[in-house]
Design a protein around this nucleic acid. Structure first.
Lengths: 130, 130
DNA sequence: ATTTAGTATCTTGCAATGTATGGTACTGTA
DNA sequence: TACAGTACCATACATTGCAAGATACTAAAT
């Protein structure tokens, strides 16, 4: 019951940053967060709380989203984890991409860029009228 | 029981087009399809089956996705509908954007472009390391 | 005439996944 | 010892795309 207040602060801050994008961001996010997490882990090993903070700078997310996601990634063999003590709080669980995780990251990135291209084609020219 | 075979053909074709993008497209799609539908309707009125065909040229979707979506759009007041007979089959239900639908389309488009920018920043530079 | 194929719409139950909510636990400071 | 900050986790829920299957009309082939 102690850190509860701080917990909510994080959520509030995350919400403020992406203010005005709330109508459907919730839906846009589906699936893309996995790519974001993999992309960040491709740069260096990180712990869960760190990922929440990094990602929530740009995209409003909460911890209840990241931790289950990371568990999925581990179950699927895309990451391994190791614990490391911290001077400022509970021990941190670091996540490290496996080879298959790196491969997944490349593949998802490619698909994402492709997908965006397709969607944008609808937004711009739209499908030609016959 | 008559047109069932043809029904499945459409699905097969749609599947083939986006072959190789199946790992997570399902997730990428969430929410974006609504934007695609609105964007296509912003160009001209269309009927449901037409939308399925247009969209499935680029993104693999099925009818079970579009019709419920269109019902949602109607319930939320973003489109109105009118029936029109056809020489080649069942009568078509056309969908027409309302003013609030047009506004929604503009807003979603803007959010989408913004969202893509944020995600791409993770993929490229990634968040700076402190 | 009956079958088959094409066009068109709709419904139900399922699966995936982000969210809200709330809990645990460790450290350092007042 | 109370509190704030850091860090992790679990459960119940809502949203939404999908699979599967039903219905109905038209037109061409048999």
């Amino acid at each position: 019951m102690y850190g509860t207040v701080c917990y909510y602060m994080l959520h509030e801050i995350a919400g403020k940053i992406t203010e005005g994008c709330d109508i459907m961001n919730i839906q846009f996010k589906k699936g893309v967060l996995e790519l974001c997490a993999l992309a960040l882990l491709a740069k260096k090993n990180r712990y869960g709380y760190e990922l929440v903070n990094e990602i929530s700078r740009s995209i409003s997310i909460s911890e209840g989203t990241i931790y289950p996601l990371l568990r999925r990634l581990k179950n699927d063999g895309y990451v391994t984890t190791y614990l490391q003590e911290s001077k400022e709080g509970a021990p941190r669980k670091y996540y490290q991409l496996t080879e298959s995780g790196k491969e997944m990251e490349r593949q998802l990135k490619e698909e994402w860029l492709n997908f965006v291209k397709q969607v944008n084609s609808f937004l711009k020219g739209g499908a030609k009228d016959e």
